[in-house]
């Protein structure tokens, strides 16, 4: 039995591990994927105090080594359910069972999916959730960006440097993204906008060849030939398996304040999976700290 069981090895989870170990307790971090979380996709992190510029990969590796160096255990497993015992919690994964006196949920968030036909089938074959990762494969090609917020604008700006054309498809007439970004997009000759539409389907053969949508005003069904579709409609937390364990808000975020305490005593939420306004590396690290010290106090 560990003092603190941590689900998720992004910035919040690994920071929690460091603070737990330094407080003289035991910690195990369980991660379903690779450690590091979303920041691994960032070519350069330039807003983390103390580092003028560091790649997401280097940052993640250093954080992981630091947590391991403090003596934290690390396991790769996909946790599918969590049970509450009399004085402990059990997390059940695909390959094992883990017990902790307290639990820190640091499962993070990921890009939200559209939920349209063809999206999953063409994932990695033209459908992408990371423009900076996959953009270079669409040099001189025609792509669509789905969304109307800053993520969509950033993706479109980045892609317009390489692609033949970038079409932003958005479900509303107006945009949520910053006006300055919208203005620079409008200046680019290869960027165009199609607004007030519903995306119906992504089609192709071995790879994406078209996106199908409906004009909400006229009801007219249309098709746009594209080689790539970049989905940028925001994020969603990785918390589906926790619905029966802790209180989630309507979007699936774990309800907890700055003290990271959930509605269940002994369970804490840290990082992007928690209800909060700002989701940054610094706030994830802060959450990991607060949650770990709260867990330690709870045990004592």
């Amino acid at each position: 039995m560990y003092d603190v069981l941590i689900i998720g090895a992004g910035t919040a989870g690994l920071t929690a591990a460091i603070y737990t170990m330094r407080a003289g307790k035991t910690a195990c971090v369980i991660e379903s994927n690779m450690y590091g979380g979303q920041i691994v996709n960032s070519p350069a992190v330039e807003n983390y105090p103390g580092f003028a510029s560091i790649s997401g990969y280097d940052y993640a590796n250093q954080l992981y080594e630091q947590a391991k160096g403090c003596g934290a255990d690390y396991v790769t497993d996909n946790i599918t359910s969590v049970y509450r015992g009399a004085s402990s919690f059990t997390a059940i994964g695909a390959s094992g069972k883990y017990e902790g006196r307290t639990l820190i949920l640091a499962t993070g968030a990921k890009r939200r999916k559209m939920g349209v036909a063809g999206e999953d089938a063409f994932s990695g074959k033209g459908v992408s959730y990371c423009a900076t990762c996959d953009g270079m494969f669409f040099r001189e090609k025609d792509v669509a960006v789905l969304g109307g917020g800053n993520t969509a604008f950033d993706d479109a700006l980045f892609l317009s440097n390489y692609c033949n054309s970038v079409t932003i498809l958005h479900r509303r007439d107006g945009f949520r993204g910053e006006a300055a970004k919208l203005a620079s997009l409008k200046e680019r000759e290869n960027v165009r906008f199609i607004t007030d539409v519903t995306v119906d389907e992504i089609t192709g053969d071995a790879k994406v060849s078209a996106i199908h949508y409906t004009d909400k005003k006229t009801g007219e069904k249309k098709e746009l030939s594209v080689d790539g579709v970049f989905v940028a409609i925001g994020q969603e937390p990785d918390t589906a398996f926790l619905a029966d364990v802790v209180e989630l808000d309507a979007s699936g975020y774990i309800v907890a304040g700055e003290d990271c305490e959930t509605n269940v005593e002994g369970i804490y939420a840290a990082g992007d999976c928690r209800t909060k306004k700002i989701r940054q590396l610094t706030t994830a690290a802060a959450d990991g700290t607060v949650a770990a010290l709260a867990a330690v106090t709870y045990i004592d």
């Binding site: 379903s32 690779m34 994932s123 990695g124 074959k125 033209g126 992408s128 990762c133 790879k207 790539g228």
Partner: peptide, 27 residues
């Protein structure tokens, strides 16, 4: 047809038999 990396493909007899996209666990 690599459009997302890391892309890991298993080649058998000169053809792609299976493939995987993303930083997946070793298993």
């Amino acid at each position: 047809g690599v459009m997302s990396i890391p892309f890991v493909a298993l080649f058998k007899g000169g053809e792609v038999a299976k493939s995987s996209v993303g930083a997946v666990p070793k298993s």
